[in-house]
Design a protein around this nucleic acid. Structure first.
Lengths: 207, 207
DNA sequence: TGACAAACCACACAAATGTGTGGTATATCT
DNA sequence: AGATATACCACACATTTGTGTGGTTTGTCA
């Protein structure tokens, strides 16, 4: 019951057909392009464009869809409708299909790793070695770095060393002077010259 | 020079204008919708749709763009052109703008965390506690789980325990019988009854 | 019974969008 | 000099696509 009530708060009631229309739009947007009105009609078996427009109107009134006038395929999903992966807590046991008991929130699939950053400002490093292991960053991880020429104390940064190597370390300031610190007691702090080229915003690890 | 030559192998030569057209298409696709021919023309300052079509033809011949006939906005980027975040090694120092010296590869922004999985098969867990810390999985991480009723030895799995708790642990088999193991010597292995509900495929951490 | 919403359809029309033909000018390469 | 590529433009036309009006049927709720 708990999971259902959370769900109800997030989404307005949709008729089964309206849900199908929404799902089709979502599918098409995910695959490639938002559909045209006639494409929706063909998929759902409607013979009139007016029918599809009735559905779009309903979805718009319920705040799930936004459109631009007189523009082809200009259908977009609102935040309420955008795809979210549920973050679950406990799960109902003893059922053929798992039922989420406690949904703690949602991860927006689009924003998951980059948010609304421009791609231009981002690059990735593949992590080598174990110097950041105490921060949970291990060999093979992909570190997503946002380009920035400076950072704050305790930020993990990508820094350019004198030998042109790029390294991922924690930035520390001590009496007004910055140095780099590994997250592994086997490594000594780095007091050499360096340049901050970006700040760590996300770590991704694939299995 | 090294970085440039790698780049050349991946991308055919584009004139500056062609690059601008491609960038605009990419931007629009990322923002919402692929542009129409006229929208491209307006953006780039072309007064004729024919001009834009010349550019699209060039981009198609170079294998960067695909189109469908007589369909509005039906422009898509091919794999060669799809957005990739560069994974860099060393970086050229002493320049006003950083220049990538050694590009080891690219992370495809779309595939980055889910690949081409259907969303239906995926859910997320927010990691609590430190029981997987030796595997580099720490509190607050988002664990992306692919639903599966079984897994192999040494896989990290989401498992449902008798008390309806879901836990992230490593699956181990010993003499034909499975149990769960933490990646932290402070925790004892779990030999109770459990059910595998999915396999860990990706870990994401945001800073 | 009447009001209302959901769930359809037909069809005309307008606007947006893609296509095709035929140009011009400039630069490069052979 | 001729071939080729880039880099544009104008304009007509076909097709796609969105809009608008006016219906019918079914069920629910007051």
């Amino acid at each position: 019951m708990c999971g259902i009530s959370i769900d109800m708060e997030r989404k307005p009631y949709l008729t089964p057909k309206q849900q199908k229309v929404l799902d089709f739009i979502r599918k098409r947007i995910g695959e490639r392009l938002p559909p045209t009105i006639r494409e929706i009609g063909e998929e759902l078996g409607f013979k009139s464009t007016g029918t599809v427009r009735d559905y779009l109107k309903a979805l718009m009134q319920k705040g799930l869809v936004r459109r631009m006038n007189n523009k082809s395929r200009a259908i977009e999903l609102t935040e309420r409708a955008s795809f979210k992966i549920p973050i679950i807590g406990t799960i109902m046991a003893g059922k053929p299909n798992l039922a989420y008991e406690e949904i703690q929130g949602y991860v927006d699939a689009d924003d998951l790793f980059l948010g609304r950053l421009g791609f231009d400002d981002v690059f990735a490093l593949r992590v080598k070695g174990d110097s950041m292991i105490d921060a949970g960053i291990i060999e093979g991880d992909i570190a997503i770095i946002k380009k920035r020429p400076h950072a704050d104390n305790n930020d993990i940064v990508a820094a350019l060393l004198d030998n042109n190597e790029v390294t991922l370390k924690r930035l520390r300031s001590k009496s007004g002077k910055f140095h780099l610190e590994a997250a592994n007691s086997n490594y000594a702090p780095i007091f050499e010259e360096f340049k901050v080229i970006g700040k760590l915003i996300t770590v991704i690890r694939k299995y």
